[in-house]
Design a protein around this nucleic acid. Structure first.
Length: 123
RNA sequence: ACCGCAAGCCGUUCUAUCGCUGCUCUUCGGAAUACUGAAGGGGGGAGGAAAGUCCGGGCAACACAGAGCAUCCCACUUCCUAACAGGAAGGAUUUGUAGGAAUACAAAGACAGCAAGUGCCACAGAAAAUUACAGCCGUGCAGCAAUGCGCGGUGAUGGUGAAAAUGUGAGGUAAGAGCUCACGGAAAUGAUUGGUGACAGUUAUUUCGGGUAAACCUUGGGAGUUGAAAGACCAAAUAAACCGAAGCUUAAGAGCUGCUCGCUCAAUUUCGGAGGGUAGGUUGCUUGAGCUUGUUGGCGACAACAAGCCUAGAUAAAUGAUAGAAGUUCUUCUUCGGAAGAAUACAGAACCCGGCUUAUAGGCUUGCCUUUUUU
RNA sequence: GGUUGCGUAGCUCAACUGAAUAGAGCGUCUGACUACGGAUCAGAAGGCUAGGGGUUUGAAUCCCUUCGCGACCA
């Protein structure tokens, strides 16, 4: 099912601090992606989406980018799930581009970013 | 009819598939109930500014015997309102238009006081507020005289400036001066008429004192502090902070509003009680100065009454994505039926209201002005 | 969510309680010196004082408002 429920979001401040401090990260335009293994999770992947306020001043722009990113992840998370096997990870997406992006284009970029993430986790 | 200005109002819609978040119903499972897990059905889900945080409240916690000072805010009148720096109606002032004028219409604003005190007013100018200087007049001395020196009188002649001592005329004088008079101007005070009042009209007396209070200040009025990350509760957990009792030494210290007066209290050790930090959950949380319609009162802001309605509640933060269709506006083409293309704004709730300010594609209504056409 | 401060030449700062041509240093440009460059000397350009409005005879300064950039509380 192409769902995206509460359990698949990373909400705890402690885990997010740990992810930022200890996680590995790489860039895949327009995202900067951080990830860390989390063996205690109930679901395979928990994600955080972040858009910096410093670049996008208006709340409506930040909201739109977060919604588009979340929609793209919801549709394409199978790419990640197939290759993960038994590993469990926390992932953070930070939108680092300076301009707004349309839905379809952003979805394509996200898929390629997910493929890169799979390679890095399995190696 | 078109263009412009002002005020008020509206500010996209529908279908399909997938998804998010509350509510509710059904079935199945767990549980003594409360409740909870899974599947399915139904129904709800951003704004006029949700924004800026510029004002005013509600609500909450803490503080609060009282007095003074300081600090900050407000400032024509009456009314509206829970309250306001908001709104309505009005007054005076200033500006603009029309007019010969009286006046009419429109717009604007933090419109108490400089006639309470202090300060400031560059350059120019004799002088920037009240004297002095030059000048003018009288007079004494020196001198043939021109003139010089001294004493006294005078107050705007000095043409600069943003601003120059109430304007014009006459009298008056040695020379002058509101020194006096006539006609005006302005201000203060008293009386009286109208008005709830600001104020306006009439009249009497007195005065002639430049501007600046978004300069210090004076007068009158007001302000306790902190904000939903406030606060309340729950489970895990269990402090050097809190409360009570006892004992000991000392009089500094602590709290109450920024300060002063004033008022209150003790610190430390032991015992007992009761609980904090941290990270979660529930609540606060959406029924409210609420919305819609109608009637009545009022010039109006608004109020009263009646009927109906329930209209987001997230929390690393929902309200979305894709596809198609429609609507609106503009451009081009046109067989005048239409077709194609482009655009469809500003912008996202975070406790809730009342305002103000700012952003805004396009449209609607009303009023005013200009031009053109018809009668 | 709330409180508070700052915007001046390309850069770093002045000009305080209003006074008229807004200064200083570094940098830039021109000339001199030198065979050439640096250093040095002389001179010049460069500002709608963040935007708009108001008070005032006069505003970088005072007041209101908008925009931008920080700091603090939790």
């Amino acid at each position: 099912m192409k769902t995206f429920s509460k359990e698949e979001r990373l909400c705890s401040k402690v885990f997010i601090d740990e992810l930022v401090a200890k996680g590995k990260s790489f860039n895949s335009f327009p995202f900067r992606i951080s990830w860390i293994e989390a063996t205690e999770n109930m679901v395979p992947v928990k994600i955080v989406i972040s858009v910096p306020k410093r670049i996008f001043k208006r709340a409506i722009d930040r909201n739109r980018l977060k919604r588009l990113t979340r929609e793209g992840y919801r549709k394409n998370k199978e790419v990640l799930y197939k290759e993960l096997k038994d590993k469990k990870v926390n992932v953070m997406f930070v939108y680092t581009a300076k301009t707004l992006m349309e839905g379809k284009e952003l979805e394509e970029k996200l898929v390629s970013a997910l493929i890169m993430l799979v390679k890095r986790i399995n190696t």
